[in-house]
Design a binder for these strands. Sequence first.
DNA 1: AGCACGCCGACT
DNA 2: GTCGGCGTGCTC
Length: 741
Amino acid sequence: MHASEHPGRILRMALPSPLRRLFDYRVPESWSQATLVPGVRISVPFGNRTLIGLLVEQTDNSELAPEQLKTAIELIDSTPLLPDALLELCRWCADYYHHSLGDTLSVALPALLRQGHATSLAEPHWRCLQPLDDKLRQQLQRAPRQLQAMEELARHPKGVSQPLLASLGISTPTLKTLREKQLLVCEQREEPVHWPSPLLHEAPLPLNADQQGALDRIECDLDRFHCHLLQGVTGSGKTEVYLRCIEQVLLQGKQALVLVPEIGLTPQTLQRFRQRFNVPTAAMHSGLNDRERLKAWLDARSGRAGILIGTRSSLFTPLLRPGIIIVDEEHDASYKQQEGLRYNARDLAIYRAKLENIPIVLGSATPSLESLHNALQQRYSQLLLPQRAAASHPHYELIDLRGQPLVAGMTPALQGQVEQHLAQGNQVLLFLNRRGYAPTLLCHQCGWVAECRLCDSRMTLHRSPPHLHCHHCDSQAPVPFRCPQCQSEELYPVGQGTERSEEELQQRFPKRSILRIDRDSTRRKDAMGKLLKQIQRGEPAILLGTQMLAKGHHFPAVTLVAILDIDGGLFSTDFRGLERMGQLLLQVAGRAGRADRQGSVAIQTHNPEHPALLQLIHQGYEPFARTLLQERQLLGLPPFQYLVLLRGEAPAMALSQQLLADTRQAGEAQVQTAGLKVSLLGPIAAPMERRQGRYRSQLLLQSHSRRDLHQLLQVLVPVMEAHPLGRKVRWSVDVDPQEML
DNA sequence: AGCACGCCGACT
DNA sequence: GTCGGCGTGCTC
Ligand SMILES: [Zn+2]
Ligand SMILES: [Zn+2]
């Protein structure tokens, strides 16, 4: 330890680098001490480049000798970019997921701030200085562009921002000309921070008794940390409860953070919030450009926005006066990041609520087993919304596929039902979770199947346009005309994808409109909107689609939902397979039924006796989930024990196996010496050994104790970092893994 | 991760 | 002779 000659003159920085440590710098002589608070951005020399990092703390001693330290370059902020709570959240997150703090902060901050952009988005505003009278019109008669600009600005005497004017086709040179004529003035302006009143734009909907009960419970702990699990079936009015909670929070002058799944942030969702409240609602989703993202972030931080709605990474957005966090569809897998910093936004949201001492509401019709377990253990309050606001519970029916002749993947019985519902003027939704034409292309003569060059998987056959496509690595290939093995021309598609079902449905129901909704049919911009519009008209139609159809959208004219093949979900290799199946099934089923009549749900299966499936449809989600919880307990799986998955992938299997085997050995030694209660399983080859040309294997750590797991990783991560194979093998630490694949 | 350095094969 | 492959080391 070296003491510096000037106390407090060493800057401990988190830098955007995967290195899991902090870096010390000297303060330039010229800087004043006063403004150096943790959380400000500072640019520093790093190797032979310059990086922008965040100040973590100031100290007067360093592991390194003073002459080994470089001097910081530039102080970018006078006030911290992130408030204490957010800094603490990022520190905790980096620690819990064993990630570098600098990289964690990079995930938390909008790209423009990482690059050093200012924390204000003041825009030039133009305002007119003279009324646009006839005399002035006369003067500008021969300058139509200038006249257009004056007309626009005369309509908005308070001024209009330059980008908005540009979008109306009014160019900056035109405006500058008018300024020279003393007709306009330009000023830098930021939007006001105060909220318009009244807060409400429209009156809230009346609540039923259950909704009121849930709201009362949440309101009674509005000023402190508490976690609520709001469990309500589709159509039970969860969103209205959210809106009423938010209203209370806004009335106290505080803000709300609403997290939604990746595909949940539809224009309709946003509209619902903006229609209810006059207070600005900021949205953050993948469709924003860097500037729009920064604007939303700054609006939340400054308190300008009363509500921030966003997907996973919005969790890291600071709020000036945090009041509540809502996690909608809390069971959704998209809350877990699947690469880099593998955080779970739902779990971090709970920790954030604790830090900020505010309530959090987890909402779902089909809660994750983790959250349900916590509610059953009384760690969360469980708020039930059992009734569907309008329609009654749908009617479920299992259809045995065994030995049945199929057309478009449907048994004769199901075809009959479809016909019947269409004839009554209703819509029918067919769910098939498989894109493309067929999952396999097979040679009838020799048994050859089209496989991916880079993965241990089969290529999916697509017809429009014709090609083979690997859904695991995105590689594509032309459809062969002859079998590459035996030259036969008898190449047959095997299995049923949405494209093929669409084709067969058109033959089976030639007079009906068939609307296919999957990633391929909605790829073009606007295509989704068009399809939704057509569905919303309510004319009889068959809607055929994948997961996309199940999430977010409501189809009031649908009275029959059919799941063409549930069996894939019943026998997944992943331990969450059944949980996922149940959640997806109920989510799809929730599309059935309208206000005035009961909906039907038909489920086709080769396993009509499957106990979990029977329990789900006869007793509902919670009994089904309780059974799964018992199984998890017996098997030592989450939420009863905790898991960490160490993954490795390399150009050869031996490399990643070796790294993980050595890691395991180091782990066993540590378990011995430190007396940790952790089991190490593996390394084993991943369920799909080769993916994108890389061989993958994994080492599983399992324990009753999060503390022991954490302590073990504290040793193992440096072992992997220092291992000579740690470079050749791409490895990652996945705490609380979502998928084992 | 990024970037430099350095050591070997194969090209003008 | 040098151009460039990637193994190795380092980043306050
Ligand atoms: Zn063949
Ligand atoms: Zn592939």
